Simulated assay, not measured.
Amino acid sequence: MNATVNVLCYKSKTLANGENPLMIRVCKDGKKKYLSLGVSVNPIYWDFEKQKPKRNCPNKEELQRLITMKTEEYQKLILDYKVANKDFSATSLITKTNAASKARTVREMFDLYIARLKDANRLRYAQMYESTLTSLLAYNGHLDILFSDIDVPWLKRYEAWQYKQSFALNTIGTRFRHLRVVYNLAIEENIVKPDHYPFKKFKVSKLNEQTAKRSITKEEIISVLNYQGKSYYECLAVDVFTFAYLTAGINFADIARLTTDHIMDDRLVYSRKKTKKLIKIPLQERAIELIAKYRQDNSPYLFPILSTFHKTEQQKVNRVHKVYSHVSKHLKAIGEELKLPIKLTTYVARHSFATNLKRSGVATPIISECLGHSSEKITQIYLDSFGNSQLDEAMKNLL
Rank of each mutant, 00 (worst) to 15 (best):
Lys316Ala: 02
Val317Lys: 06
Val317Ser: 14
Asn318Glu: 11
Asn318Cys: 04
Lys322Gly: 09
Ser325Glu: 07
His326Asn: 12
Val327Pro: 11
Ser328Cys: 03
Lys329Trp: 01
Lys332Gly: 00
Lys332His: 02
Lys332Phe: 00
Ile334Thr: 11
Gly335Phe: 05
Glu336Leu: 10
Glu336Lys: 14
Glu336Asp: 15
Glu337His: 12
Glu337Met: 06
Leu338Lys: 15
Lys339Glu: 11
Leu340Tyr: 03
Leu340Asn: 06
Pro341Gln: 04
Pro341Asn: 04
Lys343Gln: 09
Leu344Thr: 09
Leu344Pro: 07
Leu344Ala: 12
Tyr347Cys: 10
Tyr347Gln: 08
Tyr347Val: 09
Tyr347Glu: 10
Ala349Asp: 07
Arg350Lys: 08
Arg350Cys: 08
Ser352Ala: 03
Ser352Phe: 06
Ser352Cys: 01
Phe353Val: 07
Ala354Asn: 01
Asn356Ala: 03
Asn356Gly: 03
Asn356Asp: 00
Lys358Asn: 13
Arg359Val: 02
Ser360Lys: 12
Gly361Tyr: 04
Gly361Thr: 00
Ala363His: 05
Pro365Gln: 03
Ile366Asp: 06
Glu369His: 06
Cys370Pro: 01
Leu371Asp: 07
Leu371Met: 11
Leu371Ala: 15
Gly372Glu: 09
His373Ser: 12
His373Ile: 13
Ser374Pro: 05
Ser374Phe: 10
Ser374Met: 08
Ser375Val: 12
Ser375Pro: 04
Glu376Asn: 08
Lys377Leu: 15
Ile378Trp: 08
Ile378His: 12
Ile378Phe: 12
Thr379Glu: 09
Gln380His: 13
Gln380Ser: 08
Gln380Gly: 05
Gln380Val: 05
Ile381Lys: 15
Ile381Ser: 13
